[in-house]
Amino acid sequence: MPEHSEATEQDLIAHTQAGDPTAFDELIRRLTPRLYGLVYHMTSNHEDTNDLLQEVFAKAYQSLNGFQGKSSFYTWAHSIAVNKTLNFLKKRGKRHHVSLNDVDSAIENDPDFIEATASKDPVRETDIKELQKKLNEAMLKLSPNHRAVVTMFDIQGMPHSEISKILGISEGTVRSRLFYAHQALQNYLKEFRKP
């Protein structure tokens, strides 16, 4: 069992600032699953996500002495991840990577997915799978800023206030971006939705 598995976030930060790298390892263990989802749904590519997360944690480790605890470490690390990913997406431009299907196969065993497709109606099941594929494509068509808010709000379930802190924008701007992102998603998926 890892040495710091029971320590609080503040303790881990203090230990890391005091020069104990194993405390930072524990922070990585706790944050990676959450940050993976955030970056992955913005990039839609596993390899890019892996590289970006390595950079995010390297940056966080270097900057941890400057972390003053004005926001939670969770929010601070998410800010680094979102900013790095947005910069990456702006540089990458329109080059799309669709490697979502490999990972999507994993959710077919998920209880929520089973419930959603439990109608025993093969037509409906095909429709949902098709819609999910189109949804992934539609996500890739959103601008990086819109994709970021959809990822945090609709996929990860973060509240508007948390998103506004991570992005450093007002809650009103978060709501506005979400509204336009939802409009865009629904327009892309218009022909696949049932009347």
Binding site: G37, Y40, H41, L100, V103, D104, A106, I107, D110, D112, F113, A116, I128, L131, Q132, L135, V150, D154, I155, Q156, G157, L185, Q186, L189, R193
Partner: peptide, 11 residues
Amino acid sequence: IAKLLRLKRYE
């Protein structure tokens, strides 16, 4: 669509 987006968190 909202439900499908929520499902993506399990990927």
